[in-house]
Computed example of a mutant assay.
Amino acid sequence: MPLEPLAVASVVTGALALGPVAGVLGFLALRRIRARGTRGRGLAWIGLALGVVGTLVLVGVLVGTALTARNQRPLPADVTAPREAHARQLVTGSCVDPLPTGAEVDAVRVVPCGDPHAAQVVTEYAFDDAAVWPGQAAADARVAASCDLTPTERDAGVRAVAWAPTAASWARGDRLGLCLATTDAGKLTGSFLDGTVHLP
């Protein structure tokens, strides 16, 4: 009794991480074995199982890639409604509330700048893509040096907060520093960029 070649092919493609192909071949092999009486039922089941597992892994990778891409897609400069976002999505003009205070900022709440907010991104500092990690102190200093508030803003109690990449985020490809304008006196409304900001 000959060995069903599709059963062998399903195992081989499953071992090569071609999940969908292995699953289809394993299914077809079982049908042919049943119809023709050939050998290889065990191999066909193994190929089918490898196909199912491989397909699930592939779907997981695709979903993870899509979510990562979504979490890195820049936001509009001014959103139309409050939303949760990743810090790497912020751009010049983004308004946030509250202002995160941790050593590494990840999730932020972005709000329309016309709503009361704690801070606004006023400048960005882009490290060179090929740059070597300079160390946390140097990264913080470079971003802080890019923060440029006017004397009027400083006299009104506005201060700058610099967000630089951390060693961990740098290893993930983060090369963007952000400078945010905020005040300790209360919530801001409006935007620093167009001169509509209202200080508390």
Rank of each mutant, 00 (worst) to 15 (best):
T55L: 13
T68S: 11
S191P: 01
W45M: 13
W163A: 08
A29Y: 00
A130W: 02
V110P: 13
G195V: 11
L56W: 01
A107N: 05
N71P: 03
G14Y: 11
V158F: 02
T101Y: 01
L75I: 08
F127T: 07
T196S: 15
Q72H: 14
T80L: 12
V121W: 04
P98T: 09
R32V: 00
D78Q: 13
S191D: 01
G93P: 10
R36K: 14
L90G: 04
G114L: 05
L56S: 08
G14K: 08
G26R: 01
G135T: 04
L176E: 08
H198R: 14
A137R: 14
D106P: 00
D194F: 06
A141M: 05
S169F: 15
L75R: 04
G40W: 07
P20S: 00
A118T: 10
A7E: 03
L50C: 02
W45N: 08
W133F: 15
V111D: 10
V79I: 00
T68R: 14
L176Y: 02
A131Y: 09
Q89M: 15
G37P: 01
T65L: 15
T189Q: 05
P100R: 14
Q120N: 07
V57G: 00
A160E: 07
V21T: 11
P100W: 05
W163N: 04
P76W: 06
V91P: 04
C113P: 09
Q136L: 11
R32Y: 03
E153N: 07
R159V: 15
V8S: 06
L62G: 02
P134E: 01
T68N: 10
Q89E: 15
W133M: 10
